[in-house]
């Protein structure tokens, strides 16, 4: 069963009388536990697609099914609940809560979104801290961490509530090249370890080469789908 199914998906932004089409009839399918990249230049519609898959935005027309749920039918509260349950987010600017430590940032979704019991929460947070190699920095606040460390914490936060899918909008844009590779490598390792689908956007050709499935976007259209594994098998 596919994780994400988009059919003739369209998104139009309106500014007064002016209509700006951001996505024009996109069709694609994303399978579970895949490592997917949406690539394309700025303004091609990558972020808009990720926002819709992440239930942050609604399509203007067409259908978008995520985990068998038509996301167009989710209201604000239901969408928040859906995101909290099934979707993790990684942001370009890390977006950690500055007053919380690494441990507390990772714990946040379990504490404020899902309300796990304390003991179970601690066990899960420690597991993720260890998985991303940040157990020694558990008590550091974001302003005491490097960019790479912050993004590791963000990866752990995205995974901590056993999300089925993690969406990462340009997760390496603010990192140096080596760190960016290490983060992509970490994300892939997490996919292997937890079976979580990772969907990220990038316009860095070297980073996009790390994806197993790549959707190329241009001017709001999905131009091509490239599956590295299928190519390798062929």
């Amino acid at each position: 069963m596919s994780l994400v199914i988009a059919s003739d998906l369209t998104k139009i932004y309106r500014a007064g009388d002016i209509e700006v089409p951001a996505i024009k009839g996109a069709d694609f399918v994303i399978e579970p536990a895949s490592f997917v990249a949406f690539v394309g230049p700025s303004g091609s519609g990558k972020s808009t697609l990720l926002n819709m898959i992440g239930c942050l935005d609604h399509p203007s027309s067409g259908t978008l099914t995520v985990l068998d749920t038509d996301i167009a039918k989710l209201d604000r509260r239901a969408a928040a609940e859906f995101r909290g349950k099934y979707i993790g987010f990684i942001f370009q600017d890390f977006n950690l809560v500055p007053v919380l430590t690494a441990y507390e940032n990772i714990e946040y979704p379990l504490r404020m979104v899902q309300q796990w019991p304390a003991a179970k929460r601690r066990e899960q947070v420690m597991r993720l801290l260890t998985a991303v190699g940040m157990e020694a920095q558990a008590d550091k606040r974001p302003d005491q961490m490097s960019g790479g460390q912050k993004q590791r914490v963000a990866v752990a936060r995205a995974l901590v509530s056993n999300a089925r899918m993690v969406l990462a909008d340009e997760p390496t844009a603010n990192l140096d090249h080596d760190t960016a590779y290490r983060i992509i490598e970490l994300m892939r390792r997490m996919r292997d370890e937890f079976g979580t689908t990772f969907i990220f956007s990038t316009h860095d050709p070297k980073i996009m080469a790390e994806a197993e499935v790549t959707f190329t976007l241009e001017d709001g259209r999905v131009l091509s789908r490239n599956n590295q594994q299928e190519v390798a098998h062929a």
Partner: peptide, 15 residues
Amino acid sequence: REIGTIAAIGTPPSR
């Protein structure tokens, strides 16, 4: 931005 982040990761509006 921080409010956007916590809303994105599923924090309900009431919270």
